[in-house]
Design a protein around this nucleic acid. Structure first.
Lengths: 265, 265
DNA sequence: CAGTGGTCTAGACCACACT
DNA sequence: GTGTGGTCTAGACCACTGC
C-alpha cells in the first residue's frame, strides 16, 4: 500500500503502483485514484473493449474491496475524461468513436449556416496511402526514431461536393501494420473507429496547433483553389491511453464557407 | 418544492426555481442542482465577489438545510466550470481573471519555441476607443438591437516588440458606461480583470470562430506586414453568468512565430 | 490548536431500463 | 420485479493552512 486509507483497515488490490522511488514528498494518493489506475489498466489491456459494458459499481467495489462510493468517484473522473460513458439504468460502457452522436469527435469545422448535420456526411477520397519513413518532425511527434517505418495517408474531404479539407496523416508502422488504402476506402465510419476495431488503438485526446498559411501548387490543385486563398493549417497529435502519441496529422481547412469552432472555459 | 428528495423530508430553502410552467415532463431536478442555482444567484448578485472566500461547506449546508455532501457536489460542479476555486485548508473562493497563474486565460496563442512566459508580458497599445452604434453583426452577437450604443476598442499586442495581434472589441454601452482609453491604458493587468473590478462584469466562458484571412491595407499597416501574409481571424463572443454575452471581439493573429493551441477531449 | 476542504464508508431511497 | 446508475445522508478520519 502506498497510503493508509482511513476506516478501511485493509483495502487490498492496491499494488504499490510504482511509487518506489525515494521521492522527497510522501506522494499521498487517495484510494479512488489508485482504483482509477487499476481501471485504466483494464481498459488498456483490452479486458474492457470499446462499446462494451464494464462491471457494475457493486461488482467493482467487491473486486477492489472498497465502498461503492469510492468506485463511483473513480468512474466519475474516467467519464469526465471521455474514457467511459455512464447510462442510468443500463450500466457503464467503454467510450468509442463509433456509434457516437457526432460523426467526427475531433473535427471542429462547421458550416457558416445551418447545423453540423445539415450538409450530410463528408465525401472522402483517399489520394494516397503508402509506407514511408519518419521525418524528424514526424518522429518527434510520434516519439519514435527518425527513419522508422510509418504509414502515410493523404485524403480530401468534401462537403456538398466542394473539396474543403486536405489531410496528411502519419501513423506508426508497427501498431498499424496491415492498413491499406482499400481498407480505408471500404470502411464506412470514422477513421478512429476503424483504428479501434481493426488495430485496437483507441484515441483518447488530441492537441492541435493552428496557423494561417497560403497553399502551394499541389495543394491548390487538390482543393481546386488559387494560391491566393488563405487556409487554416491544423496540426494534430492524437494520443491513446497513457499519453502515447499514435497519430500525427496536418489538415488544411478551407474557411470561406466553414469555420473552426472552439469553446473556452 | 419542485421535487421530492429522498430521506430529507423537509429540505427547505428550495424555492420553486421557476419551473411553474406546465411542462409535460415533471422536470426532476436533484437537490444539488437546486443548490447550484442558489449559489449562482449569490455569485451573480455580487454577494460573493471575485477573489473573496464563500462560506464554508458546513455553513452552506446549514443555510440550505442539506447535508455537507450535497453542498459539496454543487461546489464541485461550479469549480469544474471555473466559477469557484477550492483551496484545501483555506476555503472556497470566487474565481477571478486577476491573480491567476496565466495572464490571459482565454488567449490561446503561444510562441513556437519556449514556454508561454519566456517572451514576457505582451506590450499593449490602444489604437482607438470610442462610442459607436451596434452593427447588425455585433447586435446579434451581443443580443442587443442594431444601432444600440456600444463601446468600440481597437488595440495591438506585441511580443518582443513585434506586433502580433490586432484586436477589435465591441462592448455593450450600458454595463460598460465610463470606460475610456485612459482607463484601459493605465490598468496593469488583464482587461477582463478590469471589467470585474470596475464594472462588476465577470467573463465566465467564450466561444471562438476561427478562419484564415488575408489582411486589408489598414490591417497591414498596423501589424507592419504585407498583404500577402495570411492571418488567423479569431472571432470571440464572451459570456458572463447565465450565458449573457458581454463582449464581441475579432482578433487577427500573426502565426509565423506563434500558433493557436487547442486541446481536444 | 481549530477550521477548512478531501477522502471513505455504510445505508437508504429514487429514476431508469429491461424483461 | 430486478438490476443498473443517481441522489442524499450521517459520521468518521485525513491533509493542509494559519493562528
Amino acid at each position: 500500500m502506498t497510503t493508509t486509507p482511513q476506516t478501511s483497515s485493509d483495502s487490498a488490490a492496491l499494488a504499490s503502483v510504482d511509487l518506489a522511488s525515494v521521492s522527497p514528498a510522501p506522494a499521498f494518493s487517495p484510494l479512488y485514484q489508485q482504483i482509477k489506475v487499476l481501471m485504466l489498466k483494464s481498459l488498456q489491456s483490452g479486458e474492457w473493449k470499446p462499446s462494451a459494458a464494464i462491471p457494475s459499481e457493486i461488482e467493482l467495489a467487491a473486486r477492489f474491496r472498497v465502498s461503492q462510493g469510492t468506485v463511483r468517484k473513480a468512474i466519475d473522473e474516467l467519464a469526465a475524461e471521455n474514457l467511459l460513458v455512464r447510462r442510468q439504468g443500463k450500466g457503464t460502457f467503454v467510450a468509442t468513436h463509433a456509434e457516437q452522436h457526432v460523426q467526427y469527435r475531433f473535427l471542429r469545422l462547421f458550416p457558416d449556416s445551418g447545423d453540423a448535420n445539415s450538409e450530410g456526411p463528408a465525401q472522402r477520397q483517399i489520394i494516397d496511402c503508402k509506407r514511408s519513413r519518419a521525418s524528424g518532425e514526424v518522429a518527434r511527434a510520434l516519439r519514435i526514431h527518425q527513419g522508422d517505418a510509418v504509414l502515410q495517408v493523404r485524403r480530401v474531404l468534401s462537403f456538398a461536393k466542394v473539396p474543403t479539407i486536405l489531410e496528411d496523416m502519419w501513423l506508426p508502422g508497427v501498431p498499424f501494420k496491415g492498413l491499406t488504402a482499400e481498407r480505408l476506402r471500404d470502411y464506412d465510419g470514422p477513421m478512429y473507429a476503424l483504428f479501434e476495431t481493426e488495430f485496437g488503438v483507441r484515441m483518447v485526446r488530441a492537441e492541435e496547433k493552428i496557423r494561417a498559411i497560403l497553399p502551394d501548387a499541389e495543394q491548390c490543385d487538390l482543393l481546386k483553389i488559387s494560391v491566393q486563398t488563405p487556409l487554416l493549417s491544423v496540426e494534430r497529435t492524437a494520443y491513446t491511453y497513457n499519453d502515447i502519441p499514435m497519430e500525427m496529422r496536418r489538415g488544411l481547412y478551407l474557411t470561406d464557407t466553414h469555420y473552426y469552432r472552439n469553446e473556452l472555459n
